[in-house]
């Protein structure tokens, strides 16, 4: 009997979307996505309340919302500890190191041929696994989390940056030669700008990695704050709404982080065909 209203909401939302999808304007597309999300939340809420699902297994969206409201300061402390101190600083250090390394090995094709396959290989490895080691080396506070993030983001950014620096076509390099351009000028004026789309691809991929690294590293030891710490202790206390609140914060932080990088990308690589299409 409980299934009927749930089914009704789901089908109602779906029918609305089927009807809206035929309009196909920018606004209608946004609306369709929002309606889908809202329907999902509503169905979730109804399933939990109508079937009396225990909070320990799945809290309702309203309970999660209440938990966010009630634990604002805790969530903020964890956000600062994990996202700003751990993930962001690690991402910045790892990214700068990768960019500088790519430029440093740029003049040596030998090193590139050696490093690139290894970098490609390492980028596909489960690097989070080094978290316990780095926690042992750098202690429980955010420094060890940042170190994990540095290692995680280094190789994907390095690989993309090296590929980007090599991406100029032979004609462009010949042109530089006809002007007798010194190495510095061709690097600064041609190859660095040309590498930007690749670099940003690497930077975007690694925003998520940075958050993952910072949170997972906290499972191996942390001070009494941080999102990973909170998630594991709240699970222990069966305070699932708080766990979900942390997840919500992580999701929002991840989306924002990615969004900011994508926005900077749009400003920097406005000339790239992929960005130009989005304009029109």
């Amino acid at each position: 009997m409980n299934a009927l209203p749930i089914l009704a909401v789901w089908l109602g939302g779906w029918a609305l979307n089927v009807w809206l999808a035929r309009i196909d304007t920018r606004a209608s597309r946004l609306l369709v996505a929002l309606i889908f999300g809202a329907t999902l939340l509503l169905v979730w809420e109804m399933i939990v309340t109508l079937y009396g699902v225990p909070t320990v297994i799945l809290p309702a969206p309203s309970q999660i919302g209440a938990s966010v409201a009630a634990n604002g300061s805790i969530l903020w402390t964890d956000f600062v500890q994990t996202i700003l101190k751990g993930a962001l600083s690690g991402w910045l250090i790892g990214g700068s190191a990768a960019i500088l390394t790519a430029i440093a090995i740029d003049r040596s094709p030998f090193l590139q041929r050696g490093l690139l396959p290894i970098g490609n290989f390492v980028a596909a490895l489960p690097i989070v696994g080094i978290a316990p080691i780095l926690v042992m080396w750098f202690g429980f506070d955010w420094q060890s989390k940042a170190a994990v993030v540095v290692v995680m983001v280094f190789f994907p950014i390095l690989v993309n940056m090296v590929a980007g620096l090599a991406a100029t076509d032979p004609m462009q390099r010949d042109l530089m030669a006809t002007w007798a351009a010194p190495y510095g000028a061709s690097l600064w004026k041609l190859r660095l700008p040309a590498a930007m789309p690749f670099l940003f691809n690497g930077l975007k991929i690694t925003t998520t990695l940075a958050l993952i690294g910072a949170i997972v590293a906290e499972f191996f030891g942390s001070p009494t704050r941080g999102m990973g710490f909170r998630i594991s202790t709240a699970v222990g206390q069966l305070d699932l709404p708080l766990v979900w609140a942390e997840i919500l914060v992580a999701a929002i932080a991840g989306t924002l982080f990615y969004g900011v990088v994508a926005l900077i990308e749009k400003k920097v690589t406005f000339w790239h065909p992929s960005q130009r299409n989005q304009r029109g």
């Binding site: 010949d174 042109l175 002007w179 007798a180 041609l190 700008p193 930007m196 690589t269 000339w271």
Partner: peptide, 19 residues
């Protein structure tokens, strides 16, 4: 002569920097 910038070279494609 190249280092003395003796000539301008035009390729088949414009090769302008999009940025």
């Amino acid at each position: 002569a190249r280092r003395a910038r003796a000539y301008g070279y035009v390729f088949q494609a414009p090769g302008l920097y999009p940025w």
